[in-house]
Design a protein around this nucleic acid. Structure first.
Lengths: 210, 210
DNA sequence: ATCATAATAGACCGATCGTCTAATTAAATG
DNA sequence: CATTTAATTAGACGATCGGTCTATTATGAT
Protein backbone atom coordinates (compact mmCIF):
# COMPACT_ATOMS: atom_id res chain seq x y z
CA UNK A 1 0.00 0.00 0.00
CA UNK A 2 1.39 3.33 -1.02
CA UNK A 3 0.73 6.11 1.44
CA UNK A 4 0.96 9.80 0.80
CA UNK A 5 2.21 12.21 3.43
CA UNK A 6 1.87 15.66 1.87
CA UNK A 7 -1.46 17.34 2.44
CA UNK A 8 -3.51 18.45 -0.51
CA UNK A 9 -3.11 22.04 -1.50
CA UNK A 10 -6.02 23.84 -3.03
CA UNK A 11 -5.71 25.39 -6.48
CA UNK A 12 -3.21 24.88 -9.20
CA UNK A 13 0.04 23.66 -7.74
CA UNK A 14 3.29 25.58 -7.74
CA UNK A 15 5.51 25.00 -10.69
CA UNK A 16 8.29 23.70 -8.48
CA UNK A 17 6.14 21.03 -6.90
CA UNK A 18 4.46 20.21 -10.16
CA UNK A 19 7.56 19.08 -11.93
CA UNK A 20 8.43 16.11 -9.85
CA UNK A 21 4.91 14.78 -10.06
CA UNK A 22 3.19 13.42 -13.10
CA UNK A 23 -0.30 13.06 -11.74
CA UNK A 24 -1.78 11.46 -14.81
CA UNK A 25 0.88 8.78 -14.94
CA UNK A 26 0.45 8.13 -11.25
CA UNK A 27 -3.27 7.71 -11.68
CA UNK A 28 -2.71 5.19 -14.42
CA UNK A 29 -0.22 3.31 -12.31
CA UNK A 30 -2.55 3.29 -9.35
CA UNK A 31 -5.41 2.22 -11.57
CA UNK A 32 -3.31 -0.58 -12.92
CA UNK A 33 -2.75 -1.91 -9.43
CA UNK A 34 -6.39 -1.60 -8.55
CA UNK A 35 -7.70 -3.17 -11.74
CA UNK A 36 -5.29 -6.10 -11.69
CA UNK A 37 -6.58 -6.83 -8.20
CA UNK A 38 -10.28 -6.16 -8.53
CA UNK A 39 -11.16 -5.76 -12.17
CA UNK A 40 -12.98 -2.80 -13.60
CA UNK A 41 -16.60 -2.96 -12.59
CA UNK A 42 -15.97 -3.47 -8.90
CA UNK A 43 -13.22 -0.88 -8.72
CA UNK A 44 -14.20 2.51 -7.47
CA UNK A 45 -12.49 5.70 -8.46
CA UNK A 46 -11.94 6.76 -4.88
CA UNK A 47 -9.55 3.99 -3.82
CA UNK A 48 -7.49 4.62 -6.92
CA UNK A 49 -7.21 8.27 -6.00
CA UNK A 50 -6.48 7.64 -2.36
CA UNK A 51 -3.56 5.38 -3.17
CA UNK A 52 -1.71 8.28 -4.68
CA UNK A 53 -3.24 11.06 -2.61
CA UNK A 54 -4.93 12.74 -5.54
CA UNK A 55 -8.33 14.31 -4.96
CA UNK A 56 -11.31 13.36 -6.97
CA UNK A 57 -11.51 16.64 -8.78
CA UNK A 58 -8.26 15.96 -10.54
CA UNK A 59 -9.51 12.77 -12.02
CA UNK A 60 -11.98 14.29 -14.39
CA UNK A 61 -9.45 16.85 -15.39
CA UNK A 62 -7.24 14.15 -16.80
CA UNK A 63 -9.85 11.67 -17.95
CA UNK A 64 -13.22 12.36 -19.41
CA UNK A 65 -14.84 9.33 -17.78
CA UNK A 66 -14.13 6.10 -15.99
CA UNK A 67 -14.32 4.35 -19.34
CA UNK A 68 -11.65 6.60 -20.83
CA UNK A 69 -9.52 5.98 -17.79
CA UNK A 70 -9.93 2.25 -18.14
CA UNK A 71 -8.84 2.39 -21.74
CA UNK A 72 -5.73 4.34 -20.73
CA UNK A 73 -4.89 1.77 -18.08
CA UNK A 74 -5.36 -1.07 -20.51
CA UNK A 75 -3.19 0.60 -23.09
CA UNK A 76 -0.46 1.17 -20.55
CA UNK A 77 -0.60 -2.44 -19.42
CA UNK A 78 -0.61 -3.78 -22.96
CA UNK A 79 2.53 -1.79 -23.74
CA UNK A 80 4.24 -2.88 -20.59
CA UNK A 81 3.39 -6.49 -21.20
CA UNK A 82 4.30 -6.52 -24.87
CA UNK A 83 7.70 -5.15 -23.96
CA UNK A 84 8.13 -7.79 -21.33
CA UNK A 85 7.26 -10.47 -23.83
CA UNK A 86 9.74 -9.12 -26.33
CA UNK A 87 12.41 -8.98 -23.68
CA UNK A 88 12.11 -12.69 -23.08
CA UNK A 89 10.96 -14.11 -26.39
CA UNK A 90 13.55 -12.31 -28.48
CA UNK A 91 16.45 -13.06 -26.15
CA UNK A 92 18.79 -14.95 -28.43
CA UNK A 93 20.92 -16.22 -25.61
CA UNK A 94 18.33 -18.93 -25.01
CA UNK A 95 16.67 -21.46 -27.29
CA UNK A 96 13.06 -20.52 -28.17
CA UNK A 97 11.19 -22.84 -25.84
CA UNK A 98 13.44 -21.89 -22.97
CA UNK A 99 12.54 -18.27 -23.54
CA UNK A 100 8.93 -19.05 -22.90
CA UNK A 101 9.89 -20.78 -19.72
CA UNK A 102 11.91 -17.74 -18.69
CA UNK A 103 8.96 -15.50 -19.29
CA UNK A 104 6.77 -17.77 -17.21
CA UNK A 105 9.25 -17.77 -14.36
CA UNK A 106 9.30 -14.02 -14.37
CA UNK A 107 5.53 -13.79 -14.32
CA UNK A 108 5.39 -16.33 -11.55
CA UNK A 109 7.77 -14.24 -9.46
CA UNK A 110 5.50 -11.26 -10.01
CA UNK A 111 2.46 -13.12 -8.75
CA UNK A 112 4.33 -14.27 -5.68
CA UNK A 113 5.72 -10.83 -4.98
CA UNK A 114 2.19 -9.51 -4.66
CA UNK A 115 1.03 -12.50 -2.65
CA UNK A 116 -1.26 -13.65 -5.43
CA UNK A 117 -3.49 -10.63 -5.05
CA UNK A 118 -2.81 -9.31 -8.51
CA UNK A 119 -3.59 -11.15 -11.69
CA UNK A 120 -3.43 -10.44 -15.37
CA UNK A 121 -5.34 -7.30 -16.25
CA UNK A 122 -6.40 -8.61 -19.63
CA UNK A 123 -7.51 -11.89 -18.16
CA UNK A 124 -9.44 -10.13 -15.42
CA UNK A 125 -11.23 -7.80 -17.75
CA UNK A 126 -11.84 -10.54 -20.26
CA UNK A 127 -13.79 -12.45 -17.69
CA UNK A 128 -16.04 -9.52 -16.87
CA UNK A 129 -16.31 -8.24 -20.42
CA UNK A 130 -20.10 -8.41 -20.37
CA UNK A 131 -20.13 -5.85 -17.58
CA UNK A 132 -17.82 -3.47 -19.38
CA UNK A 133 -18.31 -0.74 -21.95
CA UNK A 134 -18.64 -2.52 -25.25
CA UNK A 135 -15.59 -0.69 -26.53
CA UNK A 136 -13.44 -2.88 -24.33
CA UNK A 137 -14.15 -6.20 -25.97
CA UNK A 138 -12.36 -5.76 -29.25
CA UNK A 139 -9.44 -4.10 -27.53
CA UNK A 140 -8.95 -7.07 -25.26
CA UNK A 141 -9.20 -9.43 -28.19
CA UNK A 142 -6.60 -7.44 -30.06
CA UNK A 143 -4.24 -7.56 -27.11
CA UNK A 144 -4.52 -11.30 -26.91
CA UNK A 145 -3.86 -11.48 -30.63
CA UNK A 146 -0.72 -9.42 -30.20
CA UNK A 147 0.54 -11.67 -27.44
CA UNK A 148 -0.33 -14.74 -29.41
CA UNK A 149 1.53 -13.50 -32.40
CA UNK A 150 4.69 -13.15 -30.35
CA UNK A 151 4.48 -16.62 -28.90
CA UNK A 152 3.56 -18.03 -32.25
CA UNK A 153 6.70 -16.60 -33.77
CA UNK A 154 8.70 -18.04 -30.95
CA UNK A 155 7.23 -21.43 -31.80
CA UNK A 156 8.22 -20.98 -35.41
CA UNK A 157 11.74 -20.34 -34.26
CA UNK A 158 11.53 -23.51 -32.23
CA UNK A 159 10.56 -25.34 -35.39
CA UNK A 160 13.68 -24.18 -37.19
CA UNK A 161 15.65 -25.18 -34.11
CA UNK A 162 14.18 -28.64 -34.36
CA UNK A 163 12.51 -28.42 -30.98
CA UNK A 164 9.00 -28.50 -32.37
CA UNK A 165 7.36 -30.57 -35.07
CA UNK A 166 7.29 -28.69 -38.35
CA UNK A 167 3.74 -29.83 -38.90
CA UNK A 168 2.48 -28.03 -35.81
CA UNK A 169 0.12 -25.10 -36.27
CA UNK A 170 1.98 -22.43 -34.34
CA UNK A 171 -0.85 -19.93 -34.27
CA UNK A 172 -3.24 -22.41 -32.82
CA UNK A 173 -0.64 -23.68 -30.40
CA UNK A 174 -0.06 -20.15 -29.24
CA UNK A 175 -3.75 -19.54 -28.74
CA UNK A 176 -3.91 -22.64 -26.58
CA UNK A 177 -0.91 -21.49 -24.63
CA UNK A 178 -2.59 -18.23 -23.69
CA UNK A 179 -5.93 -19.83 -23.02
CA UNK A 180 -4.32 -22.16 -20.54
CA UNK A 181 -2.10 -19.45 -19.20
CA UNK A 182 -4.99 -17.30 -18.12
CA UNK A 183 -6.64 -20.27 -16.51
CA UNK A 184 -3.44 -21.03 -14.66
CA UNK A 185 -3.06 -17.48 -13.40
CA UNK A 186 -6.61 -17.54 -12.17
CA UNK A 187 -6.15 -20.83 -10.37
CA UNK A 188 -2.89 -19.69 -8.89
CA UNK A 189 -4.63 -16.71 -7.36
CA UNK A 190 -7.39 -18.91 -6.03
CA UNK A 191 -5.14 -21.37 -4.24
CA UNK A 192 -2.52 -18.72 -3.45
CA UNK A 193 0.30 -20.90 -4.60
CA UNK A 194 2.34 -21.09 -7.78
CA UNK A 195 2.07 -24.82 -8.24
CA UNK A 196 -0.83 -24.64 -10.70
CA UNK A 197 1.20 -22.34 -12.88
CA UNK A 198 4.17 -24.68 -12.70
CA UNK A 199 2.10 -27.74 -13.40
CA UNK A 200 0.39 -26.10 -16.31
CA UNK A 201 3.59 -24.93 -17.91
CA UNK A 202 5.34 -28.26 -17.53
CA UNK A 203 2.35 -30.01 -18.97
CA UNK A 204 2.14 -27.62 -21.87
CA UNK A 205 5.78 -27.91 -22.81
CA UNK A 206 5.77 -31.68 -22.38
CA UNK A 207 2.72 -32.00 -24.60
CA UNK A 208 4.19 -30.13 -27.55
CA UNK A 209 4.60 -32.23 -30.69
CA UNK A 210 8.25 -33.01 -31.40
CA UNK B 1 -34.57 -14.10 -19.49
CA UNK B 2 -37.08 -15.90 -17.39
CA UNK B 3 -40.23 -13.94 -16.65
CA UNK B 4 -42.72 -14.67 -13.98
CA UNK B 5 -46.43 -14.29 -14.48
CA UNK B 6 -47.92 -14.91 -11.05
CA UNK B 7 -47.85 -11.90 -8.78
CA UNK B 8 -46.67 -12.12 -5.23
CA UNK B 9 -49.38 -12.59 -2.69
CA UNK B 10 -49.02 -10.78 0.55
CA UNK B 11 -49.07 -12.67 3.82
CA UNK B 12 -48.62 -16.28 4.63
CA UNK B 13 -49.51 -18.40 1.64
CA UNK B 14 -52.20 -21.03 1.46
CA UNK B 15 -51.06 -24.48 2.35
CA UNK B 16 -52.14 -25.73 -1.06
CA UNK B 17 -50.60 -22.91 -3.07
CA UNK B 18 -47.35 -23.18 -1.18
CA UNK B 19 -46.50 -26.43 -2.79
CA UNK B 20 -46.36 -25.32 -6.38
CA UNK B 21 -44.07 -22.41 -5.77
CA UNK B 22 -40.82 -22.95 -4.02
CA UNK B 23 -39.66 -19.37 -3.76
CA UNK B 24 -36.37 -20.28 -2.22
CA UNK B 25 -35.51 -22.63 -5.04
CA UNK B 26 -36.54 -20.01 -7.57
CA UNK B 27 -34.29 -17.46 -5.96
CA UNK B 28 -31.38 -19.86 -6.13
CA UNK B 29 -32.08 -20.57 -9.76
CA UNK B 30 -32.32 -16.89 -10.59
CA UNK B 31 -29.17 -16.21 -8.62
CA UNK B 32 -27.41 -18.92 -10.54
CA UNK B 33 -28.26 -17.24 -13.80
CA UNK B 34 -27.19 -13.87 -12.53
CA UNK B 35 -23.93 -15.05 -10.97
CA UNK B 36 -22.85 -17.09 -13.96
CA UNK B 37 -23.29 -13.94 -16.00
CA UNK B 38 -21.92 -11.28 -13.70
CA UNK B 39 -20.15 -12.90 -10.81
CA UNK B 40 -20.91 -12.19 -7.20
CA UNK B 41 -19.54 -8.78 -6.30
CA UNK B 42 -21.13 -6.94 -9.20
CA UNK B 43 -24.45 -8.70 -8.88
CA UNK B 44 -27.12 -6.85 -7.01
CA UNK B 45 -29.93 -8.50 -5.15
CA UNK B 46 -32.59 -6.54 -6.96
CA UNK B 47 -32.09 -7.95 -10.45
CA UNK B 48 -32.11 -11.45 -9.03
CA UNK B 49 -35.42 -10.77 -7.39
CA UNK B 50 -36.96 -9.07 -10.37
CA UNK B 51 -36.22 -12.01 -12.61
CA UNK B 52 -38.59 -14.17 -10.64
CA UNK B 53 -40.95 -11.46 -9.47
CA UNK B 54 -40.11 -11.87 -5.83
CA UNK B 55 -40.02 -8.72 -3.68
CA UNK B 56 -36.94 -7.74 -1.80
CA UNK B 57 -38.47 -8.36 1.56
CA UNK B 58 -38.69 -12.04 0.84
CA UNK B 59 -35.00 -12.35 0.29
CA UNK B 60 -33.93 -11.95 3.87
CA UNK B 61 -36.63 -14.24 4.96
CA UNK B 62 -35.02 -17.07 3.09
CA UNK B 63 -31.37 -16.07 3.39
CA UNK B 64 -29.62 -14.39 6.26
CA UNK B 65 -27.32 -12.38 4.01
CA UNK B 66 -26.01 -12.07 0.51
CA UNK B 67 -23.10 -14.23 1.55
CA UNK B 68 -25.37 -17.02 2.73
CA UNK B 69 -27.28 -16.75 -0.52
CA UNK B 70 -24.08 -16.98 -2.51
CA UNK B 71 -23.10 -20.12 -0.68
CA UNK B 72 -26.47 -21.66 -1.44
CA UNK B 73 -26.12 -20.83 -5.12
CA UNK B 74 -22.63 -22.29 -5.24
CA UNK B 75 -23.77 -25.44 -3.55
CA UNK B 76 -26.61 -25.83 -5.98
CA UNK B 77 -24.34 -25.31 -8.94
CA UNK B 78 -21.72 -27.71 -7.61
CA UNK B 79 -24.33 -30.41 -7.26
CA UNK B 80 -25.74 -29.79 -10.68
CA UNK B 81 -22.33 -29.85 -12.25
CA UNK B 82 -21.09 -32.89 -10.40
CA UNK B 83 -24.13 -34.77 -11.61
CA UNK B 84 -23.53 -33.65 -15.13
CA UNK B 85 -19.96 -34.83 -14.93
CA UNK B 86 -21.02 -38.19 -13.64
CA UNK B 87 -23.57 -38.50 -16.38
CA UNK B 88 -20.88 -38.22 -19.01
CA UNK B 89 -17.78 -39.60 -17.36
CA UNK B 90 -19.40 -42.76 -16.08
CA UNK B 91 -21.24 -43.54 -19.30
CA UNK B 92 -19.89 -46.94 -20.17
CA UNK B 93 -21.19 -46.84 -23.69
CA UNK B 94 -18.20 -44.73 -24.64
CA UNK B 95 -14.46 -45.16 -24.12
CA UNK B 96 -13.09 -42.89 -21.35
CA UNK B 97 -11.51 -40.17 -23.43
CA UNK B 98 -14.57 -39.94 -25.60
CA UNK B 99 -16.66 -39.32 -22.50
CA UNK B 100 -14.65 -36.21 -21.77
CA UNK B 101 -15.22 -35.04 -25.28
CA UNK B 102 -18.93 -35.65 -24.88
CA UNK B 103 -19.00 -33.61 -21.72
CA UNK B 104 -17.17 -30.81 -23.49
CA UNK B 105 -19.63 -30.86 -26.37
CA UNK B 106 -22.50 -30.59 -23.97
CA UNK B 107 -20.91 -27.67 -22.15
CA UNK B 108 -20.18 -25.99 -25.43
CA UNK B 109 -23.78 -26.28 -26.46
CA UNK B 110 -24.76 -24.64 -23.19
CA UNK B 111 -22.50 -21.68 -23.79
CA UNK B 112 -23.87 -21.22 -27.26
CA UNK B 113 -27.44 -21.55 -26.11
CA UNK B 114 -26.95 -18.53 -23.86
CA UNK B 115 -25.06 -16.63 -26.51
CA UNK B 116 -21.84 -16.77 -24.49
CA UNK B 117 -23.27 -14.56 -21.80
CA UNK B 118 -23.03 -17.19 -19.10
CA UNK B 119 -19.84 -18.81 -17.98
CA UNK B 120 -18.78 -21.25 -15.32
CA UNK B 121 -19.87 -20.10 -11.90
CA UNK B 122 -16.86 -21.57 -10.16
CA UNK B 123 -14.50 -20.06 -12.69
CA UNK B 124 -16.16 -16.67 -12.38
CA UNK B 125 -16.05 -16.61 -8.63
CA UNK B 126 -12.56 -18.00 -8.57
CA UNK B 127 -11.35 -15.02 -10.52
CA UNK B 128 -12.89 -12.53 -8.12
CA UNK B 129 -12.14 -14.49 -4.99
CA UNK B 130 -10.28 -11.59 -3.40
CA UNK B 131 -13.47 -9.55 -3.47
CA UNK B 132 -15.52 -12.28 -1.89
CA UNK B 133 -16.19 -13.32 1.68
CA UNK B 134 -13.21 -15.34 2.74
CA UNK B 135 -15.43 -18.34 3.34
CA UNK B 136 -15.78 -18.74 -0.41
CA UNK B 137 -12.18 -19.52 -1.21
CA UNK B 138 -11.88 -22.97 0.30
CA UNK B 139 -15.28 -23.95 -1.01
CA UNK B 140 -14.29 -23.12 -4.56
CA UNK B 141 -11.04 -25.01 -4.15
CA UNK B 142 -12.94 -28.02 -2.87
CA UNK B 143 -15.28 -27.94 -5.84
CA UNK B 144 -12.40 -27.92 -8.27
CA UNK B 145 -10.90 -30.83 -6.36
CA UNK B 146 -14.12 -32.76 -6.71
CA UNK B 147 -14.25 -32.12 -10.45
CA UNK B 148 -10.63 -33.01 -10.83
CA UNK B 149 -11.10 -36.25 -9.01
CA UNK B 150 -13.77 -37.29 -11.45
CA UNK B 151 -11.71 -36.50 -14.51
CA UNK B 152 -8.67 -38.09 -12.94
CA UNK B 153 -10.56 -41.31 -12.49
CA UNK B 154 -11.67 -41.13 -16.06
CA UNK B 155 -8.02 -40.88 -17.06
CA UNK B 156 -7.20 -43.92 -15.00
CA UNK B 157 -9.86 -45.80 -16.87
CA UNK B 158 -8.26 -44.59 -20.06
CA UNK B 159 -4.99 -46.07 -18.86
CA UNK B 160 -6.53 -49.48 -18.43
CA UNK B 161 -8.09 -49.11 -21.85
CA UNK B 162 -4.66 -48.45 -23.27
CA UNK B 163 -5.56 -44.97 -24.46
CA UNK B 164 -3.23 -43.21 -22.07
CA UNK B 165 0.35 -43.87 -20.98
CA UNK B 166 0.42 -45.77 -17.71
CA UNK B 167 3.19 -43.50 -16.49
CA UNK B 168 1.02 -40.42 -16.69
CA UNK B 169 0.11 -38.67 -13.45
CA UNK B 170 -3.66 -38.61 -13.78
CA UNK B 171 -4.26 -36.20 -10.92
CA UNK B 172 -1.91 -33.66 -12.33
CA UNK B 173 -3.26 -34.17 -15.82
CA UNK B 174 -6.73 -33.58 -14.53
CA UNK B 175 -5.70 -30.39 -12.77
CA UNK B 176 -4.25 -29.14 -16.05
CA UNK B 177 -7.40 -30.07 -17.85
CA UNK B 178 -9.51 -27.89 -15.58
CA UNK B 179 -7.05 -25.06 -15.52
CA UNK B 180 -7.12 -24.88 -19.26
CA UNK B 181 -10.84 -25.49 -19.36
CA UNK B 182 -11.60 -22.41 -17.33
CA UNK B 183 -9.31 -20.37 -19.50
CA UNK B 184 -11.06 -21.67 -22.57
CA UNK B 185 -14.50 -20.85 -21.24
CA UNK B 186 -13.35 -17.36 -20.44
CA UNK B 187 -11.87 -16.83 -23.88
CA UNK B 188 -14.94 -18.26 -25.51
CA UNK B 189 -17.07 -15.68 -23.76
CA UNK B 190 -14.71 -12.91 -24.74
CA UNK B 191 -14.72 -13.67 -28.45
CA UNK B 192 -18.30 -14.94 -28.41
CA UNK B 193 -17.45 -18.02 -30.39
CA UNK B 194 -16.82 -21.64 -29.47
CA UNK B 195 -13.67 -22.03 -31.46
CA UNK B 196 -11.32 -21.39 -28.52
CA UNK B 197 -13.04 -24.15 -26.61
CA UNK B 198 -12.74 -26.49 -29.57
CA UNK B 199 -9.13 -25.64 -30.17
CA UNK B 200 -8.26 -26.08 -26.55
CA UNK B 201 -9.93 -29.45 -26.26
CA UNK B 202 -8.39 -30.81 -29.43
CA UNK B 203 -5.01 -29.61 -28.33
CA UNK B 204 -5.42 -31.13 -24.90
CA UNK B 205 -6.46 -34.54 -26.15
CA UNK B 206 -3.80 -34.56 -28.83
CA UNK B 207 -1.13 -33.70 -26.28
CA UNK B 208 -1.92 -36.56 -23.92
CA UNK B 209 0.91 -39.07 -23.51
CA UNK B 210 0.15 -42.39 -25.21
C1' DA C 1 -2.51 44.07 -15.21
C1' DT C 2 -5.45 41.06 -17.45
C1' DC C 3 -7.27 37.07 -19.22
C1' DA C 4 -7.24 32.37 -20.69
C1' DT C 5 -5.54 27.97 -19.18
C1' DA C 6 -4.08 24.33 -15.83
C1' DA C 7 -4.87 22.00 -11.84
C1' DT C 8 -6.93 20.93 -7.30
C1' DA C 9 -10.58 20.83 -3.60
C1' DG C 10 -14.39 18.90 -2.28
C1' DA C 11 -19.52 19.39 -2.39
C1' DC C 12 -23.25 17.30 -4.65
C1' DC C 13 -27.09 14.29 -6.22
C1' DG C 14 -28.90 10.22 -7.87
C1' DA C 15 -28.46 5.33 -7.79
C1' DT C 16 -27.75 1.27 -5.57
C1' DC C 17 -26.32 -1.64 -1.94
C1' DG C 18 -27.60 -4.84 1.82
C1' DT C 19 -30.54 -4.76 5.88
C1' DC C 20 -34.40 -4.23 8.78
C1' DT C 21 -39.13 -3.21 10.59
C1' DA C 22 -43.92 -3.18 9.98
C1' DA C 23 -47.85 -5.03 7.76
C1' DT C 24 -50.47 -8.81 6.10
C1' DT C 25 -52.26 -13.33 5.86
C1' DA C 26 -52.74 -18.22 7.05
C1' DA C 27 -52.11 -21.98 10.24
C1' DA C 28 -52.21 -23.82 14.79
C1' DT C 29 -54.03 -24.04 19.30
C1' DG C 30 -57.50 -24.24 22.84
C1' DC D 1 -64.04 -18.96 16.88
C1' DA D 2 -60.66 -16.09 19.31
C1' DT D 3 -56.11 -15.69 19.94
C1' DT D 4 -51.53 -16.63 19.22
C1' DT D 5 -47.86 -17.95 16.29
C1' DA D 6 -45.59 -18.71 11.82
C1' DA D 7 -44.76 -17.41 7.09
C1' DT D 8 -44.32 -14.07 3.70
C1' DT D 9 -44.27 -9.57 1.60
C1' DA D 10 -43.94 -4.38 1.30
C1' DG D 11 -41.21 -0.90 1.36
C1' DA D 12 -38.43 2.31 4.25
C1' DC D 13 -33.79 3.07 5.72
C1' DG D 14 -28.92 4.44 6.19
C1' DA D 15 -24.62 3.93 4.14
C1' DT D 16 -21.79 4.02 0.33
C1' DC D 17 -20.31 5.20 -4.05
C1' DG D 18 -20.65 6.66 -8.85
C1' DG D 19 -19.66 10.34 -11.98
C1' DT D 20 -20.10 15.36 -12.37
C1' DC D 21 -19.74 20.13 -11.34
C1' DT D 22 -18.46 24.56 -9.24
C1' DA D 23 -15.24 27.19 -6.74
C1' DT D 24 -10.48 28.15 -5.83
C1' DT D 25 -5.76 28.95 -6.76
C1' DA D 26 -1.75 29.17 -9.67
C1' DT D 27 0.69 29.73 -14.27
C1' DG D 28 1.63 31.76 -18.78
C1' DA D 29 0.91 34.82 -22.58
C1' DT D 30 -0.09 39.46 -24.21
Amino acid sequence: MTLITTKPRRGRPLKSAQENRDTKAELIRSGLEQLTESGFASSGIDPILKRVGVPKGSFYHYFSSKEAFGLAVIESYANYFANKLDTYLLDESYPPLMRIKNFADNAKAGLERHHFKRGCLVGNLGQEVDLLPESFRQILIDIFDAWQLRVSQCFKLAQTHGDLSTTADCDQLSECFWIGWEGAVSRTRLVQSSTPLDNYLNHFIAGLPR
